[in-house]
Nucleic acid binder design. Structure first.
Lengths: 192, 192
DNA sequence: ATTTCGATGAACGGAGACGTTCACTGGAAT
DNA sequence: ATTCCAGTGAACGTCTCCGTTCATCGAAAT
């Protein structure tokens, strides 16, 4: 019964990966069950058998993708005391991650309105967390704090990396420096 | 025969504006002829009568929208000698324009792949022009010039304004200052 | 050898969008 | 009064996707 289960699991994986590929290329919104089945080399029916509804499929695909593209570890950022140095580390790691995550992330962001709500919720929760960690130590209150968080969120966006490094042709470290400059410009009366 | 032509032109306008509204709200890709007809208070058939193919409709809608949302005048930018001052002016005007243009522009950018090619060509031509005008006078050559043009293009994007001023809650002038700082950081050995 | 069950192939009805045809109406233009 | 024609209403066939049913195949498990 092991060979049996194994083969079933293999089929499930092929479907999951096919879905992932399509989400990365045409985007979740334009991904049809028929296309998934064809890409996976199975029948539409088989897809329905493994994933009764769209959400189950999306969840499986999402989990698998996240396993392949782990986000930079926030705890490592927390461990850096100097906020400027911490920011550079965070941006460097985030942009490295973006380079591999961009195809999926841009499609996800583009199709967000038509996606199950937990996706957007997860993303925004994660953004808040990262921004909060990076904002610490700059000594910003009130308006300055709003400004700082806003520019931090912007610097961390995959679209920002794509705009600078793909469309603009910048190297990673150049993008890190420029966005660091923007963030520091949001901090009033910085001693250096 | 005047009343006749006038009424026809009015119908045509109603269709054009209905299309514009839908493009602004749900985006061009999700805009169906049936929805346009309903929004305009006419029949599908009438839409087809006025605009035989999708491109004709899009062109009319696009022209009308551009009339309502004129882009900042590049020549005014050209007239400013100091590159830093010119940049601030350009960003201020561009962000003001973005505030009214964002609903349409973000949908257009999102649906670009499924749109007639002349749209993307126009946008990229326009971007090149504006970046070129703004890059003048910073004395950047080679790698620095690439970097400068990259950040300039990024700073000018509607998505950048939206990320900073809508998602981030920044005021226009704050966004201008931060992006100016990023651009200046791309210029090596600036005297001040 | 027989049972089990994941996967197949064929087909169904429904929804929504497409583009097109035809007969018809009603108000300007003549 | 009659002609003209933009717009109507209803219907047509086509396409793609959806989700579901049924009988059947074939390889692993017994």
């Amino acid at each position: 019964m092991q060979a049996r289960l194994e083969s079933v699991e293999q089929t499930r994986r092929r479907i999951t990966e096919a879905t992932m590929n399509l989400h990365e290329t045409v985007g979740p919104a334009a991904t049809t069950v028929a296309a998934i089945a064809e890409e996976a080399g199975v029948t539409r029916l088989t897809v329905y058998r493994h994933f009764p509804d769209e959400d189950a499929l999306f969840a499986a695909c999402s989990a698998h993708w996240r396993e392949l593209h782990p986000r930079p570890d926030v705890d490592e950022w927390r461990a850096v005391a100097d906020p400027g140095q911490r920011l550079r580390l965070a941006l460097s790691e985030t942009y490295d991650w973006s380079a591999s995550a961009a195809p999926m992330m841009t499609k996800i962001n583009r199709d967000l309105p038509s996606l199950p709500p937990f996706v957007g919720e997860f993303l925004s929760r994660d953004e808040v967390l990262r921004v909060s960690v990076l904002a610490r130590g700059f000594g910003c209150r009130g308006r300055a704090a709003v400004r700082l968080r806003g520019v931090l969120a912007h610097a961390l966006r995959v679209e920002t990396w794509e705009s600078l490094c793909i469309a603009g042709g910048l190297h990673r470290d150049e993008a890190v420096e420029l966005m660091t400059a923007a963030v520091l410009a949001a901090v009033p009366a910085r001693t250096a």
